[in-house]
Design a protein around this nucleic acid. Structure first.
Lengths: 224, 224, 224, 224
DNA sequence: CATGAATGAGTCTTCATTCAT
DNA sequence: AATGAATGAAGACTCATTCAT
């Protein structure tokens, strides 16, 4: 845990140590949860799809629930570390950092659509309180980090004083998430039916990058 | 089917006739689906919560799946009619219509958070193809209507020529959706813990209204 | 009830009076029971197929069970009357009567395959005691009538003294039954795949007629 | 698969491997299906009667339907092997083989009345196409084997040239089946009410043996 | 006389989890 | 450390029947 964590009062999160077998199962489970939902996926489905014994899921993770928790830690801890590195980077200007953060978020969501579908699912459904707590914890970390960056920009008078950071991030994550969800509709409405999925992803990444940067400029009140 | 439907080639959607008993059950089911997810809610849960016999759910709707379909028609058909009325209204200017559409969308989502949670759930989970088809049908209708409005604004040279309508709407729906999902986090991060839910909703409506109108201006390139 | 009934001690059977509506329902139910079995057919199936209200089935027949009982009376009472007439007929010789009985049985089973499938079902399944009782009653009547005919033939020294009437009838009914059941297999094995159903029925009637008459001769020991 | 199979083009049938637990359940299910019909027997009935957990039925067989399929394979595969052995046996004469086949069929049906009731049920009800396919497959095998035997007898000029094999077998199986179905009626009509079931079975076996052999002689046109 | 609405009991099947090995 | 066998609980759904009108 680096210094900025201490300053920002980020609580550490206990994460189960994952072997290769764990991650192999997690990555298969990710595809199934994204496709059929957490409740719509049975432990047997996961075991079959991952090619492991049914009882091994519980043996390795304790329960279906805890498997999901492990999945969130597995994906979100990496994101947090990356975020810390970018923000702590002394060689990048404020605006460079903002644009990198936007592009990295877009890339991450478009490249890991499965996980982000699951993340979205978990938040839209209020049921599992433990999962919601984990997500909130990570979101708190992310938001504090971004807030510290914004404040830095404000102190340097690069951007407006009044910025609702949560709303700003909400716009970004909401738009990107919605694009993933609407991908098939976008394809259909704009007559891209024959475009390969990979190409459509790249197209959307570019569109989103321009679009969100424009929105950020508008909200943050800066001109390059 | 009114004239604008014919011009825009909106396919009519067959909707089960709903009695008061139907809507009574639907509205209870809505709360449960939003809270626990479709797969996480049992038909027995719905029956108990709606105070009706278990077998009546199937008697009235045919199946759990068809109940969900009925719910989508019930909510989304009304939205479509409202949309048609606003766009067809001759007494409103282009910009008035845009702002009304934004505000009505924000109000609808914030006031019917349960239904919109279910709508997002259904889209994030790829499983139920019939439901996805119904949603796509309505989204197609909405988007065609908005497109016709945008084109009208473009013809009158009020806004930019190049506008990706789907991306524009995605920004709006994505942001509003994410705000609903993040409501508790927003409350916590901004120290509004004691603010009543109703007040927070109103606060968010105002913030969102200003925010999205600003984003639309930025994207559509207009100044009032 | 005619004289022979009294002599043979045939108990009368109380039969529900059937209106046209009753028989209309019965005949539709017959097709369904034959196709899907009694337990495999729901009262709703019958109501839908007969184009009547669901509650009307119980209203008209009392219960699903009693509908089946009515069906047996409806079909079997007619058979008994026909049997009595043939046997009582003074203008026919003994052998003529035997051959008519064989041919009529074959025709009846081949023409009313649905009902006879239900009759076999009911006998093969031991469950419904009331139905079994009704069937036994009719079979007793049939067998006594045939027995009286056989005795007549024996007295006239036209046929062998030692004849197991039940076994003789069992051979006939068993063979004809099995032919109905095996019809599709017969068609396939003998490469009659394109023969229309009606033609196959006629072919089988002829084959069975010759076949069973030959078997009867062999068992009863007569030569024409 | 032995040589005669290859010559006769008998398709092999894939059969689930059965443990002792499988057969234990199957044999209990057999009694219940015979007594109450397939549709009239619940999986719970079977579980209770076999003394196993309800969920184990599906665990072991996959479904109620597949349990029935397993039962047919279990019983009919054994019959086919026995048939092959008899027909391939070089130490038996043609007529010896015919008589053994008759007697073995009678014994099998009278000793396994439950299974044959179920076999009959399945054929009388047209519903379950998969089961009908399995039965047809086995019947095809049996009939081809018997046909080869008949041809052998015809080549050796021991029997008539024109014999409808399917009709011949239909007479045998139909008669024997009908005897099983009519057993109680036979008992009653011939005043054997106090005869133990075992004794009645033996009586019927003897009667049937003589009877069917006589019928076969008559049809096949041979004198020993 | 006829029926739409309603229901308690029952159907088959699947579930996540456990446990002896 | 890993797993095949097993299970109690719960799942969605269908059933024959009833009853107020």
């Amino acid at each position: 845990m680096n210094n900025s964590n201490k300053r920002l009062n980020l609580r550490p999160i206990n994460i189960m140590v994952l072997t290769e077998k764990h991650t192999q199962i997690l990555e298969k489970a990710e595809l199934l949860f994204a496709e059929k939902g957490f409740d719509g996926t049975s432990v047997r489905d996961i075991a079959d799809y991952a090619g492991v014994n049914l009882a091994m899921i519980n043996y390795y993770f304790g329960s279906k629930e805890k498997l999901l928790e492990a999945m969130f830690h597995y994906r979100m801890a990496a994101t947090r570390e990356r975020l810390e590195d970018i923000i702590a980077n002394k060689t990048l200007s404020f605006f460079q950092k903002v644009e990198i953060l936007i592009d990295e978020h877009i890339n991450k969501v478009l490249n890991k659509q499965c996980f982000f579908r699951i993340l979205f699912q978990a938040q839209v459904i209020n049921k599992n309180k433990q999962i919601l707590k984990i997500i909130r914890e990570y979101k708190l970390g992310y938001t504090k980090l971004i807030s510290s960056l914004i404040e830095e920009g404000q102190k340097a008078k690069l951007i407006r004083k009044e910025i609702d950071v949560v709303l700003l991030l909400t716009t970004m994550t909401g738009t990107v998430t919605q694009v993933v969800i609407n991908k098939d509709f976008y394809r259909e409405f704009n007559n891209h039916k024959k475009m390969p999925d990979q190409a459509l992803n790249e197209l959307l990444k570019n569109k989103l990058s321009t679009h969100i940067k424009q929105v950020f400029k508008s909200i943050m009140g800066y001109e390059e």
